[in-house]
Computed example of a mutant assay.
Amino acid sequence: MSNVVNWNDAEQDAFAGDLVTIFAYTTPAGGAVAIPVSPTGGVDRAAGEISVTTSLAFNRKLRHLLRDPRVAMAYHTREHGFASGDDFILAQGVATVPLEPSPARLAAIQPDMNRFLGAAPTGPVWDWLLREYHQQRVVIDITVRRVATWPALDGRGALRVTGEPWPAEAAAPQEPPAKGTAPRVDPAKLHKQIHKLPHQVIAFRGADGFPLVLPVRAAAPDSRGLRLEFAPGLLPEGGRRAGFAAHSFGPQAIGLATRWATGWLEVSGGEAYYAPHTSAGFVAPPIKTIQTFVNGVMAKQGIRRARRDGTLTELAALKSTTTR
């Protein structure tokens, strides 16, 4: 048990209480993807683990995790959940990815899911609609290697690190992509979609291969991309592939508004610009039944598609290869 990271009570409060966090993983090209998730209090302090559950219908992230299990979770909201405080907390670790649902494990986390997200509607139609969403899920356990905490949600203040030491040197700049670094998505359009979303982060691969997720704020764009505001010294100099995420949510994570992007981050002389290359997202109405209905339909369609096109078989083969 000597390798278990002993985080403090404030960090435990966030791990056990934040309603929506950012989950980040790396890409084969050396970038990172950042997506909002609801971990519903998934933490085992004694084991030094945090966890998040995901539907097998939304399996793209699982491919990346099987290829490189180094991940990060940013606890950065304190909104509508059960945690308090103003710390920005980044947990980095190694993910264990099961490809078969565990009914016992899913039953064990159901009370926390109800506590954070509210009880799902029931009845013959709802039970049929939500069958794949509830039953075709896996719990991803993350063995925490490092917890990095800044005393303010905007990343200002002295960094505190528990677990593996923070890399002595920042990640080296990366080679530009073959298609260039200029924006491929209209920065003005993207800014219009995100400027009212309160929670914004940038993610990229750190010097030791773990994703870094850091708070930023997108200001008015120009031809170079989104101009990012950030705490002094928070972002490393140079250019690199990076993911961006902006989101908002209401109680029980209802009324989601989410936009994420992949692209190129360039930092020079205290200025940072993000050139978006891809962008996606959605806005859900603040009505629980509608959001639940959409989740059920998407999960049902996603599982059927994964079975039809062989995705689940392909994931199993990839897992077998990576665990030899």
Results as ranks from 00 to 15, higher is better:
114 N>A: 11
62 L>H: 03
15 F>G: 04
8 N>D: 15
64 H>R: 14
112 D>E: 14
104 A>T: 14
91 A>R: 05
141 D>I: 00
127 D>F: 13
86 D>S: 11
36 P>H: 12
13 D>I: 07
121 P>I: 12
55 S>N: 11
110 Q>H: 15
15 F>C: 14
70 R>C: 07
36 P>N: 11
10 A>E: 12
68 D>T: 00
100 E>F: 03
39 P>F: 06
57 A>S: 13
9 D>K: 15
106 L>C: 10
56 L>F: 08
17 G>D: 06
21 T>K: 03
41 G>Y: 09
25 Y>K: 01
52 V>D: 00
62 L>I: 08
139 V>P: 01
12 Q>W: 12
44 D>I: 09
23 F>C: 10
45 R>T: 14
10 A>R: 14
9 D>Q: 14
109 I>V: 12
135 Q>N: 10
119 A>K: 12
135 Q>I: 03
123 G>E: 06
69 P>E: 10
126 W>A: 08
64 H>K: 06
110 Q>V: 13
68 D>A: 03
76 H>W: 11
98 P>A: 00
136 Q>F: 02
10 A>Y: 06
83 A>F: 02
63 R>W: 15
134 H>F: 04
117 L>C: 08
61 K>E: 07
79 E>H: 14
12 Q>F: 14
25 Y>W: 15
133 Y>K: 03
146 R>T: 04
146 R>D: 01
121 P>G: 08
44 D>P: 07
34 A>G: 08
75 Y>F: 15
32 A>N: 04
137 R>Q: 14
15 F>W: 15
94 V>H: 10
92 Q>A: 10
70 R>K: 12
23 F>D: 01
65 L>N: 00
21 T>G: 01
77 T>L: 09
116 F>N: 06
70 R>E: 12
120 A>Y: 05
31 G>T: 06
87 D>Q: 10
30 G>I: 04
28 P>A: 04
93 G>E: 11
136 Q>A: 14
92 Q>K: 10
27 T>Q: 06
17 G>T: 13
30 G>W: 01
105 R>F: 01
71 V>P: 01
63 R>N: 12
68 D>Q: 00
68 D>L: 00
28 P>R: 11
79 E>W: 02
67 R>Q: 11
9 D>H: 13
124 P>V: 04
67 R>V: 01
59 N>W: 09
79 E>L: 04
20 V>A: 09
105 R>Q: 15
120 A>Q: 08
24 A>E: 09
66 L>M: 02
75 Y>P: 02
49 E>C: 12
125 V>N: 02
36 P>M: 06
92 Q>V: 02
106 L>E: 02
102 S>H: 04
36 P>W: 09
122 T>F: 05
41 G>Q: 10
42 G>Q: 10
60 R>D: 15
18 D>L: 08
63 R>M: 08
27 T>R: 12
129 L>T: 06
76 H>A: 15
86 D>H: 11
48 G>Q: 05
130 L>P: 06
84 S>F: 10
100 E>I: 05
125 V>H: 12
10 A>K: 08
85 G>N: 10
85 G>Y: 02
135 Q>D: 11
128 W>L: 07
40 T>Q: 07
106 L>R: 11
73 M>D: 02
39 P>C: 05
55 S>P: 01
27 T>I: 10
53 T>C: 09
140 I>R: 05
93 G>L: 09
130 L>G: 08
53 T>K: 02
132 E>T: 05
52 V>Y: 04
92 Q>P: 00
81 G>Q: 00
108 A>P: 07
143 T>R: 08
98 P>K: 06
67 R>Y: 11
55 S>H: 05
